[in-house]
C-alpha cells in the first residue's frame, strides 16, 4: 500500500522534473539558434526531411478525409434538404479542426518519430558528445535547425492538407454527386471567415508544429543510451505528441471559437 503511494509520488516528481528539463532544453535551443540564420542551408535540409518527405502522406490523407467528409456530410445534409451547405461543412471542419489536428498527428508519426530516432541514435552512439569535444555546439548545429525546419513545415503541411481536403469534398459533392457548383462555393465563402477561421487554423498549426517538434527533439535528447532506450523514446514521442496536440487543440478551440 505504502509502496503504491510512493510510486505515484515518484512518478509525479519525475514528470515535473522532466517538464523542467524540457523547458530548459527549449530555452537553450532557442538561445543558440543564431547559427540557423548564418547557415540557412541547415534549416533547408531539415525542411526537406520533415516537410517535403511528408508531402505524399499529407496530400493523400487530406484528399481521402475530404472525400469521406463529402460523402458523410451529403448523406446527413440531404435529410434536411440543404445539400448545398456541403461546402460549408467540409471547409469549416477542415480549416478549423481536421486540417491542423490530423496533419499534426500525421506529422508526429511521420516526422516526429524520425527526429527522435535520429537524435536518440546520435546520442547513444556518442556523436553529440564527439561534437562537443570538437567545440561544435550540438544545440546550434543539429537541434536548432531541426526545430526551425519542423516549425516552418507544419503550418504549410496543414494548409496543404486543408486545401486538398476541400478539393476532395468538391470532387465527391460536385463532380460525382452533383451538388450545384456555384452554391457549393458561395455557401462556403459566405460562412468561412478569413480571420476567425483560416487565421485561427494557421495559428493552431503553428502551435502544433512547435509542440510536436519540441517533444520529438527532447525525447531523443533525453533517451537512455541503449537500443531499447531509443525504441521507448520513439514510442513516447508519438504518444506524448498525440496527447499534447489533442489537449492543446481543446484549449485553443475554447479560446478561439467562443461567442458570436
Amino acid at each position: 500500500m505504502i509502496d503504491a503511494i510512493r510510486q505515484v509520488g515518484a512518478k509525479t516528481v519525475n514528470g515535473i522534473w522532466k517538464f523542467g528539463c524540457a523547458t530548459r532544453f527549449s530555452f537553450t535551443m532557442l538561445a543558440r539558434s543564431g547559427m540557423c540564420l548564418r547557415r540557412p542551408q541547415l534549416v533547408l535540409d531539415e525542411i526537406y526531411f520533415t516537410g517535403v518527405l511528408s508531402l505524399i502522406i499529407i496530400i493523400v490523407s487530406g484528399l481521402f478525409v475530404g472525400l469521406v467528409l463529402g460523402l458523410q456530410g451529403y448523406e446527413t445534409l440531404k435529410r434536411f434538404g440543404s445539400a448545398e451547405a456541403l461546402g460549408t461543412l467540409v471547409a469549416l471542419s477542415l480549416v478549423r479542426e481536421l486540417g491542423p489536428v490530423v496533419a499534426a498527428l500525421l506529422f508526429a508519426s511521420r516526422a516526429g518519430s524520425a527526429i527522435t530516432a535520429k537524435i536518440g541514435i546520435m546520442k547513444s552512439t556518442e556523436q553529440l558528445s564527439a561534437m562537443e569535444m570538437m567545440a561544435v555546439d550540438p544545440h546550434a548545429r543539429v537541434i536548432a535547425p531541426i526545430f526551425w525546419g519542423g516549425a516552418i513545415s507544419m503550418p504549410l503541411l496543414a494548409a496543404i492538407f486543408s486545401a486538398f481536403g476541400v478539393f476532395g469534398g468538391y470532387l465527391i459533392g460536385v463532380v460525382i454527386i452533383g451538388v450545384d457548383s456555384g452554391a457549393f462555393w458561395s455557401q462556403m465563402q459566405a460562412s468561412v471567415d478569413l480571420r476567425e477561421d483560416v487565421m485561427n487554423g494557421v495559428i493552431k498549426s503553428v502551435v502544433f508544429g512547435v509542440a510536436v517538434t519540441l517533444i520529438a527533439l527532447f525525447e531523443g535528447y533525453d533517451t537512455p543510451a541503449t537500443a531499447e532506450g531509443v525504441s521507448y523514446a520513439v514510442t513516447r514521442t508519438v504518444v506524448t505528441s498525440a496527447l499534447a496536440v489533442l489537449a492543446l487543440d481543446f484549449v485553443m478551440t475554447s479560446f478561439m471559437f467562443t461567442g458570436v
Binding site: 471547409a91 480549416v95 504549410l156 494548409a159 496543404i160 486543408s162 486545401a163 486538398f164 476541400v166 462555393w185 462556403m188 465563402q189 468561412v192 471567415d193 478569413l194 477561421d197 483560416v198 487554423g201 494557421v202
Partner: peptide, 10 residues
C-alpha cells in the same frame, strides 16, 4: 494552399 484557403474558401 494558404492563398486558396484565404481567397477561394474564405
Amino acid at each position: 494552399a494558404l492563398m486558396v484557403l484565404a481567397l477561394k474558401v474564405g
